[in-house]
């Protein structure tokens, strides 16, 4: 991919189509409300427009987006504006309306700490291996394995019974 300091709309749209869901999901998992997740998604792709980074292909773009999304979420989480924004549960329901059975899953998965949620998402849903997650999140390889192991235990305890029931039904 070319070295670009001002990517055109066609290129941004193509990258957006492929990766907007990933960026939005990570933002929503960290910030827990849809309005902030939308803001972060937009911020991340606007940064991409002007990023001087030379990307080594689609995998590199995606890894960059994940890193920038996590940082943007942290910036937003610290911001005064967000703290004044109001009750997040009210905002959350405006766009995400889980069924009663799913609401419990939502609460429990979202209740995990960010350090567990992100490795779980990248490993199970995006299919990254632990080495790749280590590089993307910039944490030690053994730490990734430990966090996945801990997260699995937590999730199994929290969710397995619910899901087993749901899948049998």
């Amino acid at each position: 991919m070319e070295d670009s300091s001002s990517r055109d709309n066609a290129e941004i749209s193509a990258i957006y189509t492929r990766h907007a869901d990933t960026v939005y999901r990570i933002a929503l998992m960290i910030l827990k409300n849809t309005a902030d997740a939308e803001d972060v998604t937009q911020t991340v792709f606007i940064k991409l427009m002007n990023a001087p980074t030379r990307f080594d292909g689609n995998e590199h773009v995606k890894a960059w987006l994940i890193t920038v999304t996590r940082n943007a979420c942290r910036d937003m989480a610290k911001s005064w504006w967000r703290s004044k924004r109001g009750d997040m549960d009210g905002v959350k329901e405006s766009a995400y309306s889980p069924q009663d059975t799913d609401r419990d899953i939502w609460n429990r998965v979202m209740g995990l700490h960010e350090k567990y949620k992100l490795p779980v998402y990248l490993y199970y849903y995006e299919g990254y291996d632990t080495g790749e997650i280590s590089r993307i999140l910039k944490i030690n390889h053994s730490t990734v394995r430990t966090r996945l192991r801990t997260a699995r235990l937590k999730l199994r305890q929290l969710l397995e019974e619910d899901w087993n029931d749901a899948e049998r039904a």
Binding site: A95, Y96, V120
Partner: peptide, 22 residues
């Protein structure tokens, strides 16, 4: 557990309307 996780992550995707607006 995996099936439930995928359902969960699928469910936190933006809607088509949200994506277009963003």
């Amino acid at each position: 557990m995996q099936n439930g996780l995928n359902k969960f992550f699928d469910s936190v995707s933006p809607t088509a309307e949200q994506k277009q607006r963003m």
